Amino acid sequence: MNKKPLICITTGEPAGIGPEICLDLINSPYVDSHNLLLIGDVHLLNKRAKSLGKDVDFIIISNPDDFPVLKYGQLAVLHVDCPDHNCIGRPLAINASYVLNTLDIAIDLCKKGASKVIVTAPVNKDVLNQGAIDFIGHTEYFAEKFGVKKVVMMLANNLLRVALLTTHIPLAKVPSQITPENLDSAIQIIHDSFTSNFNQPQPRIAVCGLNPHAGENGYLGMEEINIINPVIEKWQQVGYLVSGSYPADTIFNRASEFDVILAMYHDQGLPVLKYSGFETGVNITLGLPIIRTSVDHGTALDLAGKGLASSVSLHSAIEIAIQLSFTSG
């Protein structure tokens, strides 16, 4: 038995590539320093491994406190029953509760103090909602389960970090969420997270405008003048390195000047990040009492079961989660 730090890894939507990219963790450089625990159906994982010609020895873990020392080629799994294994490329509503159960188990382990890190493989929001589960996204689900009023979704790759003021909401609803309270809270969470987890006491935060050309002095919209700029000025007056609002069509060319760029909505910031480094992208939830990272891609149903899926983002998510856990209090 060993007492290495435990990392909970949920295996995601069984119809997608989540289970198979998790199989590649037998090659993770962190198995010597951390206990990597897959949370999912061991029989489904075993079937997927065999179908892909991967030689993996699964060790079932019932109590993470009794985690064994794994040998090469072994992966530890906390088994959760998945109703239908014959689902490759076809998300089934019958499996929705299974996917959610893997998340709940990881959350429970963290609440009990067994772990402080969760890394998630991708899920299918549509099939979860078909299964009568009101699921907006991982970010919102973790916030609710940990009783956190607001969190910030941030994605990072080797070139830049992009945080989002709003996440998975329709574009038509974004302007109503651009409020002084929401923006102020997001900046606070970003600042606190960079101070505690990234060891950067004075993070340089660039804030995008909502409108084209950041409103162009009110000609293209008043949100910058009435809401965004006053909040930025308030933070500047107390000595924080918050600047903007910047036009979103040019600020990403200056990414090296900042530690993070705060975009107003999902598709304002993430297309740039994903284009600049898709495979190494990692999703990080700021503001939780734990470390939570995720792959920066979807379930890729068209690739599932074909042995074509890349596990680079998953490895990156684990690497960043470990780095953050070392610097967190």
Rank of each mutant, 00 (worst) to 15 (best):
V99D: 00
A172S: 11
V117R: 06
N95I: 05
F146G: 03
A121N: 14
L171V: 13
N63G: 05
V99K: 01
P64V: 12
V56I: 15
P175E: 08
Y141H: 08
T139N: 10
G131I: 03
A156E: 07
D134C: 09
L109I: 05
V119R: 04
P170F: 08
Q188E: 15
P170R: 10
T166V: 11
P91I: 11
N101D: 04
I136A: 09
K149H: 11
I105C: 12
F67L: 12
V80N: 03
S62V: 10
K149N: 14
Q177M: 15
L155V: 01
P180S: 10
K112G: 06
N86K: 13
R90L: 11
L100K: 10
Y98K: 04
N95F: 05
A143R: 06
A172M: 12
G137H: 05
H138T: 05
I107P: 02
S62R: 12
T166C: 14
N101T: 06
G113C: 14
D65R: 14
A132C: 04
V123I: 13
L128T: 01
V56R: 06
I187V: 09
P180L: 08
L109C: 09
G89H: 00
L183E: 04
N182H: 08
V99Q: 03
H85G: 10
D81N: 07
L160C: 02
F142P: 00
V119A: 15
K111T: 01
Y141E: 10
V152I: 07
H191R: 13
V117F: 03
F67V: 09
E144D: 15
M154C: 14
G131A: 05
V162P: 01
T179I: 06
D57A: 09
V162G: 02
H138S: 05
F135I: 03
D84A: 05
P180H: 08
I189Q: 02
F146W: 08
P180C: 09
S97T: 05
V151I: 15
A93Y: 03
K112R: 14
T139Q: 09
V151C: 14
S115Q: 01
D108F: 02
D66F: 02
L78M: 15
V127M: 11
H168T: 13
G89V: 00
I61V: 10
A121S: 15
L183Y: 06
G131F: 06
C82H: 13
V69L: 09
P91E: 10
D55P: 02
D192A: 15
H85Y: 09
L155G: 00
P180A: 10
E140L: 11
T179K: 05
S97A: 08
A114M: 09
V123N: 10
I118E: 01
P122H: 03
K173S: 14
G73H: 13
K145H: 12
L92N: 02
L109G: 04
I94Y: 00
A96Y: 07
N95P: 04
V127D: 02
I88G: 03
L103C: 08
V152G: 03
V117Y: 03
H85S: 10
A114Y: 13
L70P: 11
A76V: 07
L164W: 00
P83K: 09
I136N: 07
N129V: 00
L160F: 00
D55N: 15
I60A: 14
I107L: 13
K125I: 13
N157V: 01
